[in-house]
Design a protein around this nucleic acid. Structure first.
Lengths: 142, 142
DNA sequence: CTGAATCCATCCCGATACTG
DNA sequence: CAGTATCGGGATGGATTCAG
């Protein structure tokens, strides 16, 4: 790469580039949770289903397939009765997991600030509401 | 599990926790692009609109509002004619941007592997198709 | 146990048009 | 220039049911 510094802007902002494409997939609602859960070692389907609060079986399957297709998870089927399937992070996924954990750390570190920002923003909106009710469809007090 | 180490799993897998909540927002299709674009300094609305290929005005506005609400962007209106609005990353967002860049780097580093994984996976699927057409709704040759 | 298939509600998102 | 309003299609996601 001949660029002296990292100018990823043009890369990221181009939806056709592989970076954005990949990021879109990891960006899903459940992907991070699954990846983090699988980072600690092989995990069974049901373990994930119970471990990830709120996910449906369908969504779990879908995400698992997607991540497997991305090459982030390896699916291993043990031909036993009853069937046993384990999902394991690939090396690539473990690397990604490092970054993901950094992301999580960031989120935890600033969750307070963000909650505060929400409150501030919402309060400001409420102010604007009563300050400029011009677009109100129903008159205030007839 | 005595959580002597960082056990973020339970944090991430709980949809009610602030971490997941925050991550969901940054995980959007455009958020990363906007954040990265704004990291280099104040940016005007139209600059973003033109810079981010494929985004609609509506989506840009929505994402901008969301990120502002998250406390990641600061919106500054200059009461001039014509109006001039600038968006700037907060310090918090700049920190996040570091991690985001790591994510982008990872994606670029492994985009080849991922493309390869796609091909392999899809090929395997095609194999399964012709290997086990048992669930086919139309008989093969009457 | 581990899915696949179907149905259905929701919501995201893009295109378009209008405004201060 | 920097939005807002509205509409409609398509993707997303949950519940349920069936199957290997």
């Amino acid at each position: 790469m001949s660029r002296s510094h990292i100018d990823v802007t043009e890369q990221v902002d181009n939806p056709a580039c592989p970076v954005t494409e990949v990021l879109d997939r990891v960006a899903g609602k459940w992907a991070i949770g699954i990846l983090v859960a699988a980072a600690k070692g092989p995990v069974r389907f049901t373990e994930l289903e119970r471990g990830i609060e709120g996910i449906s079986r369908r969504m779990l399957t879908l995400n698992l397939r997607k991540l497997e297709r991305e090459g982030l998870l390896v699916r291993t089927v043990y031909p036993t009765v009853p069937p046993r399937v384990e999902y394991e992070c690939t090396e690539m996924a473990l690397e990604l997991n490092e970054t993901l954990l950094a992301l999580v750390d960031w989120a935890r570190l600033h969750s307070g600030d963000i909650a505060c920002a929400h409150a501030t923003y919402d309060a400001a909106q409420a102010q604007d509401q009563e300050a400029a009710p011009s677009t109100r469809s129903v008159p205030l007090s007839a």
